[in-house]
Write a protein that binds this DNA or RNA. Structure first.
Lengths: 243, 243
DNA sequence: CGTGGAATTGAGACGAATCAAACTGAGTGG
DNA sequence: CCACTCAGTTTGATTCGTCTCAATTCCACG
């Protein structure tokens, strides 16, 4: 995670960004990537707690995360944060605002982060001349739809235990996809955020962590996490009852 | 619903379709809509139980629902159908398959329906020459993302009662948006499908229906439904405890 | 070393799932 | 026309899991 943290200070151009394959640059040629660079600005040094945008703000910018973790959430009637997602490097934020022209939730950094601000109107015009760029956006949105649906299934019937393990495996896969370890990583959110995200309460999350630890399936020390038995964890996430 | 049923027999062209505002045609000019018509074929007479596609099938077609109701679902390990969505006239199916090139779930008709089959590759090429078409697809996908997120919130914390009422109000809003009554309509799915969709079991759904009926909030006769007290129902959907 | 936020652990309450049984209504055939 | 079936639905009794409330411990920070 050191390297990611260092990234936060730098204004790296698209063509030098290690995340371009996850991001809008995708399969673009070097020349095309340069054009893409002209409709965005890099905003390094987003500090912990800083907001990218708020719910109901006028939409004009898509954000690409270069480093760090961003949390999206809503404020409920009782003042509680209903967390709608945790977003990692390479992911885009604000896509669901294109149709309504207003952001649907608040987005704040869970740690020191770095983002690219993509002015959507300029981007859109550029995309008219670059079919590959248009296609890449389409792919990313399709992918988000797919994952969002997966998420829905997950939360249908399963027990809190299964769902929480699914969450951990999901984070694991996402870290792995970014070149980090699949079994050892640092969660940048609090237990309480996980709970609100999963629609559970803190105590339940905590209990399940303890339980998994006693069973030797994970080792958790604060926010550091070590997944010890992936096979068994995968079983649990699929709803099999371990003994 | 009669009119919708009659539609199922007709091969209406895009330019004559009452749903074009909900669909890909969107804000296209008459000439452009005709071009759109050339990359799609209308498939009338999809019978109850017919499948549009199955999970893991190779993706090549986006489906637009012209009339009827389509159910998307997955088959779980134990053979049960995990229902992932109910889709009404004007909605597009298959968008989440663009990135992986494989459909993610099964889609079957809950009643006699009618769909447009849009060959995606041809569509995609056409879209390169028609920016407005590209934009319309973008808007639709953004909208789906937004609704999918809304759905997630819904299912976070709330009680079965709140969630079920939310589901009914969601159906109501969608019917209204299509020009039907917001308070009286026919649900084309079984109680058991609703249950599986909402991640509850049949008995719970049935009990809540009975309960709402006793309280005079709804009148249900089989699959026909009459929402009697919208104000109160909205309160319940937001999590307020009625007495 | 003390403070406050976060996490853990325990005991009891409540809601939804499960198991079991009865009811309804559409369709079938004698 | 009635008896039968069968899928779908409703209702009741019980069990199980998660939430709630309360108390304690842990840890980062000044």
């Amino acid at each position: 995670m050191k390297t990611a943290d260092e990234f936060c200070h730098l204004n790296v151009a698209c063509e030098d960004c290690g995340l371009s394959r996850l991001c809008l640059a995708g399969e673009l040629s070097q020349e095309e990537v340069k054009q893409l660079g002209q409709v965005m600005t890099c905003r390094a040094g987003v500090e912990k707690g800083d907001h990218l945008f708020h719910a109901n703000d006028q939409f004009d910018t898509i954000y690409a995360i270069r480093a760090g973790t961003i949390q999206s959430y809503l404020l409920m009637g009782d003042g509680q944060e209903q967390i709608t997602g945790f977003h990692l490097a390479g992911e885009l934020l604000g896509l669901e605002a294109i149709s309504s022209q207003h952001y649907l939730y608040h987005c704040k950094a869970l740690e020191r982060s770095s983002v690219c601000e993509i002015h959507f109107q300029s981007f859109s015009q550029l995309a008219h001349t670059l079919p590959k760029l248009q296609q890449q956006l389409l792919f990313i949105m399709s992918n988000e739809l797919a994952h969002s649906n997966q998420f829905n299934q997950l939360f249908g019937k399963q027990s809190a235990r299964s769902r929480l393990v699914s969450f951990l495996l999901n984070m694991s896969a996402r870290f792995q996809h970014r070149g980090f370890s699949a079994t050892q990583f640092h969660l940048s959110m609090r237990r309480c955020d996980i709970a609100h995200y999963m629609g559970m309460n803190i105590e339940t999350v905590s209990r399940i962590f303890s339980q998994l630890q006693q069973e030797g399936l994970i080792a958790a020390k604060g926010r550091y996490l070590h997944l010890l038995d992936m096979r068994q964890l995968k079983k649990i996430s699929l709803g099999f009852h371990s003994d």
